[in-house]
């Protein structure tokens, strides 16, 4: 039987992808941002930890979805997905190979569980998905596991509530645990932490609020799942709303979790970079 073995979160700042692709990770500006991923890179490739499949929760940044179609939750079900051309040409990263059997199984199971998922086959994946893969796995010839893309609308308001995201995580856990193949599955939540990319308030960072958010992923997930959107916006900036996606990861891990690793760095481009590794305890 498949089971969820860990949850990982990470910001997905596009400039991080550019720094990796252009070989700038050793520059003074970037060194401290990347250093916090060394632990995870080693941990994740140990045989007991290495996932067979990652369910990668991210938001599409107007790459696969334009204003014509705005799905709240879209699960990628094709066999593979190409890196998107976001204006600079596609990132030179491997093709994303899906575990399509598990993806379709999750889609069916979640729909029966009253989560009306959008199923998508033809989709290019942007920095929201590929930057976390680069952070965790470096620059391999091929990604070392299968990846199920789960795109969440956090661009056009309203995005899903934190509670809805958390409950979707629970439904995903039930779906994974009813899949007959013996698989280690991780759920990753990406985006955040505090950042604002617009107007005179651009550059907002709230380290205290971010750290409390990281604390409460293990200490008080109830506070996070009931947090209204306006708090994310006021405290963590207009793009800080991406953090609702972390709650899908958290909901998938069950009631109790253990924090294995944490990294927080200001700033990566416009953004407070946050990263955590959690293990389910039940």
């Amino acid at each position: 039987m498949a089971h969820i073995t860990a949850g990982i979160t990470s910001s997905h700042v596009p400039a991080i992808g550019a720094a990796i692709d252009l070989g700038k990770t050793d520059e003074d500006y970037w060194k401290p941002a990347f250093a916090g991923f060394d632990w995870t890179k080693e941990w994740i490739m140990k045989p007991e930890n290495k996932p067979d499949v990652v369910i990668l929760v991210y938001n599409d940044h107007a790459s696969a979805f334009d204003m014509n179609l705005i799905p709240t939750f879209a699960i990628g079900c094709a066999d593979e997905f190409q890196p998107a051309d976001e204006g600079w040409g596609p990132r030179p990263v491997p093709v994303v190979k899906n575990h399509a059997d598990l993806a379709w199984h999750i889609a069916q199971s979640c729909i029966l569980d009253e989560f009306d998922m959008t199923i998508i086959n033809k989709m290019d994946v942007d920095h929201g998905l590929t930057v976390p893969l680069s952070l965790m796995f470096g620059e391999p010839e091929a990604w070392p596991c299968k990846i199920i893309p789960l795109a969440v609308n956090v661009v056009t308001y309203p995005p899903p509530t934190g509670n809805r995201c958390y409950n979707l995580g629970r439904a995903i856990r039930d779906a994974v645990e009813s899949f007959p193949e013996d698989l280690k599955v991780q759920v990753w939540g990406t985006g955040g932490m505090s950042h604002q990319l617009q107007g005179t308030r651009a550059g907002l960072i709230n380290a205290e609020w971010d750290q409390k958010f990281l604390d409460d992923l293990s200490a008080d997930p109830e506070r996070l799942r009931t947090m209204p959107h306006i708090e994310y916006l006021r405290e963590a900036g207009s793009e800080g709303i991406e953090l609702v996606m972390w709650l899908i990861m958290r909901g998938a891990l069950g009631d109790k979790v253990k924090e294995l690793h944490r990294h927080y760095h200001v700033a990566a481009s416009n953004t407070a970079l946050g990263h955590i590794v959690l293990e389910p305890q039940d």
Partner: peptide
């Protein structure tokens, strides 16, 4: 880059904006 484009909305120079981000960003 995002940083270059975003800085144009703040009334700050790109360099000042970049330095603000390096010293902890804008307080809420």
């Amino acid at each position: 880059s995002y940083l270059q484009a975003v800085s144009t909305m703040t009334g700050m120079s790109e360099e000042d904006y970049r330095n603000m981000m390096l010293s902890g960003g804008r307080s809420p």
